[in-house]
Nucleic acid binder design. Structure first.
Lengths: 338, 338
DNA sequence: ACAACAATCCGAAACGTTTTGGATCATAAC
DNA sequence: GTTATGATCCAAAACGTTTCGGATTGTTGT
């Protein structure tokens, strides 16, 4: 592996000059620079990022900390698309991305902070972690710059990107109401998710706006899991057969709800309408296709990376980025007659 | 950030001793070791991997080179699951993974090899790259240890993991034949994919085994893309209405074929049976649910990482790992009557 | 002729580790 | 009493880069 030293020897200059030539400093003669560049190419030189990182005290690497990078999480292509978005921006600006995950079977004994510090990442993006995750506060309180996805914490070193989940939920519920639904239930995620708080808030507000009663007992938690949502929907439908529509805090749960409806011999959307949240791939392929609130997951990753790197390089205007959501009407919601 | 030097000072020993104590060498007194460990913990010490990597000349990091980490590729959860598998093993053995992708809009001007050498990855896993990708040979010919997914190249530094695609294809076609199909078409991927070569081989062998004619003009390339497969299937079905079944080299293409069949007013599986390959998430959610040859994508990633790291640490028995496939029968194939 | 200045170069230190090749000392063997 | 042995420690070099503070020229202005 050729080093700066080899180039220096071949070019008959000092390593200082080689370094400065390669890095575009102005105090090196254009002719020597050319010569050095040529030799570097000819010797097939690649700089050693470890050495550089060591002396510069930064690695041009960011960490993506995700929880739940499991076999099953493929269904929910959220993580994947965020990852793709992060990767996209990161490679545009010549950073690298290293992936950390907590779901290894033998629970990793090192904390996020330790991981970040050992690997000398310049900053981190956190995706999919619960608000009660102990690591969350550890990271936030450490001085490692980070941006959170869907958790609104802001400080000198932490920012976040999210969507307006209250508004998103409202859009969904208003849509159901416009279709003529008056008896709407909700399957939420779990307590320790910021988006859950927000979406249920939007749900209630939309009902109130329309002059409809808010029935707490028509709100159930599905833990963002398909089967649990199915079970809860089944329970609600049996207990309260008058329900005509479901608003779900995730598409995966909406799919579970659809199963529950079918299981009771009812039809979607004619007997019970269902609307989800996220717009995962499955949403448009299920039958009936799922109406949903679409989030641009790729953009969330992209913007998170952009925000983080802007913060790292000291040119971040703001530490928060709110993205738009969009109502997608498909087959699982339809005008209610009668 | 506390260093080994701080610990040395605090403990009143040399940095050598600290290093050796922390790394479990035997030539340090148990009492001093304890003291050093305590101080290290108390000072919240994390080793600097950059420095370590620099002197040891290895980074305990592997690169995952994927092509096609785009928004759209989420449909095809192949990449994601492989990634999850790689991540799983890598974190089990305390390595790290950095992601490289070629699909950045502004084509990354650096080659894979340069990326690998700059970032000082110890080895690389290549997934989803075509056999005619110029980078492929570059990587294979460089001395960077790597393992390929679904490309059978083997050398002192190169290994691969794949499945038996000939057998897999045979299983699929035999299944169709057993159901009574005699006029079977195939939608393949593209020329520059090893798996395509193999699957079409299996397709033909299965036909011959059963004494059925091989009609080259019933084999079309769908480029692993849903719309292209749909178009090709449409063309074939119009030109040869006698076709009663399709074997597709990927599930995504199979979904396209199903669309084509429906578009012609025919039904799946009654008029035309369709079987895919991969067992992506969508397969079990589409309607009808797609029969397919399942590959354990997570395991492929896991085994690739294991193989690579075994190679790196000099204890790889073999450089190749072949995984099993499994026929999954769902709604898109059914006993043919008449 | 001399000072001032710009252009171009370089030596050496620094970053935080690991490792080599001893040094020191106490104990055991002769 | 001397020597060998083992236990425990350490100084210094090395990894490949960046950068600080100057050194060496040649040119310009007076």
């Amino acid at each position: 592996m050729t080093t700066i030293k080899d180039i220096a020897k071949a070019a008959g200059v000092s390593i200082t000059t080689v370094s400065r030539a390669l890095n575009g400093y102005s105090d090196v003669n254009e002719k020597t620079r050319q010569k050095i560049m040529d030799i570097a190419k000819q010797l097939n030189y690649s700089p050693n990022t470890l050495a550089r990182g060591l002396v510069m005290n930064k690695s041009k690497t960011i960490g993506l900390l995700v929880s739940g990078l499991t076999r099953e999480s493929a269904k929910d292509n959220f993580t994947f698309e965020v990852l793709a978005g992060v990767n996209e921006y990161v490679s545009e600006v010549d950073y690298d991305m290293v992936l950390f995950s907590t779901t290894s079977t033998k629970q990793r004994e090192k904390t996020y902070t330790q991981l970040c510090r050992e690997r000398r990442v310049d900053g981190a993006i956190l995706q999919g972690i619960r608000t009660d995750d102990p690591y969350l506060h550890e990271v936030v309180e450490s001085e490692i710059p980070c941006v959170l996805i869907d958790i609104p914490i802001e400080s000198k070193t932490v920012g976040y990107v999210t969507t307006d989940n209250v508004l998103g939920a409202k859009k969904a519920v208003r849509h159901l109401i416009e279709l003529g639904h008056k008896r709407i239930a909700m399957i939420n995620g779990y307590e320790y998710a910021f988006v859950s708080e927000q979406r249920v808030k939007g749900f209630k507000e939309a009902l109130i706006e329309a002059g409809l009663p808010v029935r707490e007992y028509w709100i159930a938690n599905g833990a963002f899991r398909e089967e649990i949502a199915e079970r809860e929907a089944l329970r609600l439908l049996q207990q309260y057969p008058e329900i005509t529509a479901f608003f779900c805090a995730s598409d995966l749960m909406a799919l579970g709800v659809i199963k529950a409806v079918k299981q009771l011999g009812k039809r979607v959307p004619d007997d019970v309408a269902v609307i989800g949240y996220d717009d995962i791939i499955l949403a448009s392929y299920s039958s009936p296709a799922l109406s949903t609130i679409a989030q641009d997951k790729f953009a969330m990753g992209y913007e998170a990376a952009k925000l983080l790197i802007d913060m790292l390089e000291g040119n971040a205007q703001s530490h928060v980025k709110i993205l738009e959501t969009e109502l997608k009407i498909r087959g699982s919601t339809v005008k209610k007659d009668g």
